[in-house]
Nucleic acid binder design. Sequence first.
RNA 1: GGCGCCUUCGUCAAGUGGUUAAGACACCGCCCUCUCACGGCGGGUUCAAGGGUUCGAAUCCCUUAGGCGUCACCA
Length: 375
Amino acid sequence: MNRIRTRFAPSPTGYMHIGNLRTALYAYLFAKSQGGDFILRIEDTDRARYVADAVEFIERTLAAAKIIPDEGPHHGGAFAPYVQSERMDIYKKYAEQLVADGHAYYENGAIRQKMPRAGETTFFDVLHGNITIANSELEDQVLLKSDGMPTYNFANVIDDHLMEISHIIRGTEFITSTPKHVLLYEFFGWELPTFIHLAPVMGKAEDGTVSKLSKRHGATSFNDLIEAGYLPEAITNYVALLGWSPKNSCQEIFSMDELIKNFSLDGLSKSPAVFDYAKLDWMSGEYFKAMSDEDFAKVADKYFGDFDAPRKIFLSSLLKTRVAKLSDIPDMIAFLKNLPQFDVELFNNKRNKITPQKSAEILAPAIKILENVDD
RNA sequence: GGCGCCUUCGUCAAGUGGUUAAGACACCGCCCUCUCACGGCGGGUUCAAGGGUUCGAAUCCCUUAGGCGUCACCA
């Protein structure tokens, strides 16, 4: 059996959507659970969309999420370069070969793939089984753009083959273009990889409607969530369970190692999952509760304001069980610095048989006693 | 609109012809408790609809509906 090799192939935008992070996570978990390789490849063939430093941004984000590529732009590897804009001559060569073989043709400076007019193309997807699409639905798509850059649909196939990718794990938005890829593999006489098309991550709006997770639903990128004060481990853990569940187990709290140990493709769900901030909050809280006061104080440090170290650790012992995300902290401890307005209602407590009048009687002598107490 | 994919509690989900249809989050109630939390116990709500097949269907087949995706020199 061939070595298991998966890849994460983002385009370089300065943004790591939760859905993309999840795709990367599953590709990583699958490769690692099989003792295989996980490759990072940058698909920067759209010059108009290029964002400076995006590659470093992606690498930093993956590192924070503990998703470590075996090969990639700055990780090296036998199939370098891992940035598509640096592989233009390769795509050109294969595109020209297709033209020579009669499977593609020139048009306005671009090279287009010649699709069969009749028949149908079928491919196997691990989650969906056989998917068949009539060839009449397929366009003569552009392979090589007039600026010399390949399109996604071409570069992707060439690179996945050349880099010996065994399993293609990506979003369902690519299902309908997969037959075009399959035709390309057939033209070249290459072995087909295994396809796994993941359902999207959805968001729920206030009016109850569900749609693909986007900004209108709040924080939608890994970095948004980090900034809100969620631990990277908690985010990864939650995201892993959004569309995957372990077999023969109800475990929900997973370290990365446990995720790798338990991951299997048949635990993947083929229907979309709605991102639930409430559950993320709960899971995040579980991580905080499991921390020592010292560790909590460390990650929460910048949210405390000017308390001394021992005080921060003491506050941590109280905050640990009450916090869903670290950014909750400032509001929770604000009263320690500014005395808030207290409602007289607070002095009504039926159970303790307390009324505002009674409280006043009790509090007066109590103040005297408290004044004499040591710190 | 054509084509494709999807459809189990509000949400994440287990389930692959015979189960009282797991579990978790959220919600509600009770207990613990000087408050808020934490913790413990308990509760309600689910197989999109309609047809088949079968002794028996959440599980198999068909139809309908709804959702999503795709039809770019974007990925």
